[in-house]
Simulated scan of single mutants.
Amino acid sequence: MSHRHTDVPARVISEEACPVAEVLDHVSGKWSIGILVAAAHGPVRFTELERRIEGISRRMLTLNLRKLERDGLLTRTVHATVPPKVEYELTGMARELHTHLSGLVGWAEQHRAAIQSARVAYDERKSAATAPGTAV
Rank of each mutant, 00 (worst) to 15 (best):
E16K: 00
R59G: 09
G106N: 13
E124H: 11
A129M: 09
E109F: 03
G133Y: 07
A80G: 13
G34N: 05
T81N: 08
L61D: 01
D7T: 03
I35W: 01
D7R: 00
S57V: 04
S127P: 00
E109P: 00
S127G: 02
P132N: 03
G34P: 04
H111G: 05
M60D: 07
I53K: 03
V136Y: 11
A129H: 08
W31Y: 11
S32E: 09
F46I: 03
E124L: 15
A118D: 12
E54I: 09
A135K: 06
H3G: 00
S127K: 02
R70K: 08
R4H: 14
G103I: 07
M93Q: 09
I13T: 10
R59C: 07
E22H: 15
L36F: 05
E109H: 12
A113D: 13
R95L: 13
R112I: 02
M60T: 14
E22G: 13
G55K: 03
K85A: 13
A118F: 08
E16Q: 08
P132Y: 07
E15D: 05
H3M: 00
V27L: 11
V82A: 08
A129C: 02
A118Q: 13
L36T: 08
T47F: 07
V8R: 09
V20H: 06
P9M: 04
R52Q: 07
V23I: 09
A40H: 10
